[in-house]
Amino acid sequence: MADILVYALHYEGAFNKNSLGAVSEGARLAAEAGGECHAVVVGGSDLTDELCATLGRYGAAKVFRAEAPEGLAQPVIDVMAKVMDDNGHRYALFGGGLLGFEIGAGLAARLNAGVTMEVTGVNVVGGELQAERPILGDSSISTSKYKDRGIIIGRLNAFEIRGDGAGDAVVESVQVELSPWSTRAKMVQRGEQRGADVDIEGADILVAGGRGLGKAEGFELCDELAKAFGGNAAVAATRAVVDAGWYPYAAQIGQTGKTVSPKLYLAAGISGAIQHKVGMQSSENIVAINKDANAPIFEFSDLGIVGDLNKILPKLAEAVKAKKGS
C-alpha cells in the first residue's frame, strides 16, 4: 500500500501554508497511487479536534495527533517513525520549511529510508512516487526513485494548496514515548520578531538589499530608491543581512522569510541563493545589480546590471525621481 504521511506544521492555531500544500499534494498522489493521504500533527492543547479535522478539506483522510513539544524536529521524528511503522506508510511528505528538512532527514536516518530535499515535483510511476529535484543552481533536474521507503521534502511554495476536499478528516490521538535525546533540547522562545514591523507583502515595487550593501547604512541607498519610486514601494532584504542585524526580519524574503510577487523586484548586492529565490521568483519583473557577472541571480533576472551598486543606486534614485516629476 502506498499510503503517504504528511507532516502538518502549525503555529498559533493555524496550519502552515506550505504544509497545506503538502497535504493537498499528498492527497493527489495517494489517489493516483491507490492509497490514502494521512497527516500528522504534533503540539499541545491548541490542536483541537476541530482544527485537526480541517485538514480533510485538503485531502487528508486521517489525522494522527500526538502531544509533544512543537517547533523542534526530534519529537516529530519520534512520532512519525512510530506512526509510519504502526500503519505501514511507505512515504513521508513535507512542504518547504526549515523543520521539514530537519525532520525528514532525521526520519530517513531512523527508518533507513531514502530522502530527497528541495523537491519541485512528484510523479506517480507504476504506483510508486518519484521526486524531481533541481540541482546545481537549478541548471539541471534529477529524478529520485526509492528502493524502499521514501521521504520527500518539498521546496518552498512547490506544492499548490487545494482546499476543495471532502470535508472533515478522522482524528486519531496517538501516544508516543519520546526518545531521551529528543527531550534534551527545549524551546525557550519561539517566533521572535526582530526589528521593525514592515510590510513588504503588499508592495508593488520592492527594492531588496543584500550583503553587497556592505554595512547596515548601505540600506539608505535602497530606502532612497524606494522613496523615489514613491507610492507602493518598500525595501526588502536577504537572510544574510537580517541575521547580521542590518535590517528587520519582517522584511526578509525567502525560505525562512516572506514569499512575495511584486510587479517589480529590484535586487542590489544579492547573490541569488536558492533559499532567497524561492521567495521571490514569481515576481513579474526582476532586475538585479551585482558586481559579479557570474552571480546566480543573473540566471533568473529579466534585466541584469553588472556593476557597483554604490555607483548605480544613487544615480538611479535621482533618475527615477526626475522621471516621476516629468
Partner: peptide, 8 residues
C-alpha cells in the same frame, strides 16, 4: 531563524 521568526 525558523519559519516564524527567531527561536531560542
Amino acid at each position: 531563524q525558523a519559519e516564524y521568526g527567531y527561536d531560542t
